[in-house]
Computed example of a mutant assay.
Amino acid sequence: MLLLVALSIVFSPFVVITETPENPHHKPPTPTLNYSTISLSPEHVPYFLNNNKRVAKRCRLDPLCPFKDALQDLSFCWGYEKNCDPEKRFSYPMCTKADSGWARSLDAAQELFWKQADFGYVKERLSELKTLCKATRPGDSSLKCCSHIRFCKATNLYLDLRKPRRSHERYKEDFIQAGEIGGHCKLNKEALVGEGDHKSPLQSW
């Protein structure tokens, strides 16, 4: 009997717990992105991620991403996106009365306000964008503007401001001379001049 007890003790399974000494050179995991640069209100984060698919993808794969909750539904949109569902857009004006002088109904008044003072205005301007200076290779300059050059988006253009021209003239339009602005792209000069019909001196209101 004692032999059986001894054998059972010798051959019984057991677990050895060992502690791995801490590696002084081991670095704790770090986020793949600097999420502190996304300084947004929490309710705005889903809209941001919907418009920045690359950031959303990296956040989804990063266990340290603080915006996991915002990834649950990326159908929210501001309203200017091409595929934005009207029911998912950020906001829509609510009118209680329509002035017959500029809108025939409440629906028309709300739509007009949205297009003139909300993200609908942004949507229309983006739809007007046309390339005025086309890049021919990666890293080149580019210039895109909407109608009447009310809004432009440029990359890698330069302004030479080393010799500013100062005068007492209030509304000066020739502050920048030929050769003081440029880049490396194919300029459609006729289109650029044709869109300048709403040009006026820079003014301070």
Rank of each mutant, 00 (worst) to 15 (best):
T32L: 08
L40W: 15
I38K: 02
P63A: 08
P21M: 07
I38V: 11
C59N: 05
T18L: 11
Y35M: 09
F48H: 04
H25M: 14
K27C: 08
I38H: 02
R58P: 04
N23V: 10
I17L: 08
Y47K: 00
E43A: 03
P24F: 12
T18W: 12
K57E: 15
F48Q: 00
S41N: 12
P24C: 13
K27E: 14
T30M: 02
P31M: 05
P31A: 04
P21R: 11
R60P: 01
H44M: 10
L49G: 01
P63F: 14
P28R: 06
L40I: 13
T30A: 04
T37L: 15
P63W: 13
P29G: 00
I17S: 02
H25V: 12
Y47G: 00
P42V: 02
H26W: 10
S36Y: 07
Y47C: 00
S41K: 13
N50H: 12
V55P: 01
T30Q: 07
P63H: 14
P21A: 12
P46W: 03
S41R: 14
P31L: 04
S41M: 13
L61H: 05
R54C: 07
C59A: 09
S36F: 03
D62F: 01
P46A: 09
H25C: 14
P31Y: 03
P29K: 03
K53A: 13
E22Y: 00
L49C: 08
R60T: 05
D62P: 14
P42E: 01
H25R: 08
S41D: 15
R54D: 12
T32P: 00
P42A: 03
L61T: 11
P28F: 13
E19M: 09
I38C: 04
N34W: 04
P28L: 14
P28M: 11
R60N: 06
T30C: 03
P42W: 01
P28V: 10
K53D: 06
